[in-house]
């Protein structure tokens, strides 16, 4: 009987559901949203890339050694581990903005996999180039030192 009267009362009550498109649902102030990046503060230590569980951050490198930050919001799990690992305050930060949907044109999955592989490759290429240049420089230094020694030796004999 109690249930019956309650059911009657419910007929005149307002709906309890939130009118979503017209009223915003509850979002807390420190909601875990998109990761922001401030390039001017970054010290390029790549610690965020090392700790990221799903691999949503990757740095590519051009032949001059300049690094570029890449972030994929579809791969990110918004755990904030990169922000905790960042040694420079303010370079990486977590915003309260929810990650928005990806469009087909963005090619967010396959495109990211390709970009990730290319970024790692670019770093390897730069490292190899650096190594080659260092070896070249060392060889040149060695040759120069040898030449100097020889010339010194020659001058010693002539003197």
């Amino acid at each position: 009987m109690k249930t019956f009267f309650k059911a009657l009362g419910n007929l005149v009550k307002k709906p309890v559901t939130t009118k979503y498109p017209f009223e915003q649902t509850f979002i807390p102030d420190d909601y875990r949203g998109l990761i922001g990046f401030e390039e001017s503060l970054c010290i390029w230590c790549r610690r965020c890339e090392a700790v990221c569980p799903p691999g949503a951050i990757v740095f590519s490198q051009d032949m001059e050694g300049k690094q570029t930050y890449h972030y994929n919001r579809a791969v990110c799990i918004y755990c904030g581990e990169c922000v905790r690992a960042c040694p420079k305050e303010g370079a990486l930060f977590q915003t309260a903005e929810p990650g928005h949907c990806a469009l087909k044109e963005e090619n967010i999955n396959n495109g990211w996999n390709k970009l990730f592989a290319e970024a790692l490759e670019s770093r390897e290429l730069y490292a190899a180039e650096k190594k080659r240049k260092a070896a070249e420089k060392a060889a040149a230094d060695k040759a120069a030192a040898a030449a100097k020694k020889e010339s010194e030796g020659n001058s010693g004999t002539t003197a």
């Binding site: 807390p28 420190d30 909601y31 875990r32 918004y78 904030g80 581990e81």
Partner: peptide, 23 residues
């Protein structure tokens, strides 16, 4: 809603990390 306010997410809380808690 309380879990979302405490952890920042409704379902995957990621609250405990090795060594303590994240927030």
């Amino acid at each position: 809603e309380l879990l979302e306010a405490v952890c920042g997410n409704r379902i995957q809380y990621d609250f405990s990390i090795v060594g303590g808690v994240s927030r």
